[in-house]
Amino acid sequence: MIAERDLIERSRSGDVQAFSRLIGRYEDRIYRLAKHVCVGLPAEADDVYQDTFLTAFKKLKSFRGDSELGTWLYRIASNLCLMRRRKKSSEPFVPLLDSPHDHDDGAAHQFRDWSTTPEEAANKKELVEKVTGALAKLPMDYRLVLTLRDVEGLSTAETAKILKLSVAAVKSRLHRGRLFLRDEFERAFGAKESRR
């Protein structure tokens, strides 16, 4: 496998073939981010995916390598999502996010754990729809944090770096967003199976 820094160097001098190999390494991650942040708007997700790599190709000369290429691409994609939101007039208002129940009785919240459900394959499409439907109810700032941290599995510090937020701000959005989604998942997946 060709080293990433060699591909970056070749891409910097305008080699589209080398850049296409870089796209191949990162396209799933960038498309997932775009899809989950621009949830419910597949055309927007496609545009963010394409614009991320076009922007990266044009600006690769300014990429100094201080961060990982993946982090830089996530940052471009996140900014593109946020710029698109600014053009739109409305965002969902979620009262729960303003006053989350910080320490409630977690035992009362039960839902089927999708990650370990045996019939997952058969029901996958429906479950993906339910999870993305719940994500869509959150404002974009929360979707970005939850997608980078909990879907992509980045650390809190990496997420903060990409979004140019403080670690405390990321943690706050993460917690409020998770509490909201927990309640949504409970409604969507049903509590009866787990309450024995």
Binding site: G106, F111, V131, T132, V151, F185
Partner: peptide, 29 residues
């Protein structure tokens, strides 16, 4: 209380993380 909160949030995170298994960009894009 803490056990319950951790369990329910843990399920939430695992459920979200399962989205990582999907999403390939469409051929047209």
């Amino acid at each position: 209380s803490c056990t319950g909160l951790l369990a329910s949030l843990g399920r939430t995170v695992r459920t979200l993380h399962a989205l990582k298994r999907v999403s390939k960009p469409p051929v047209s894009a």
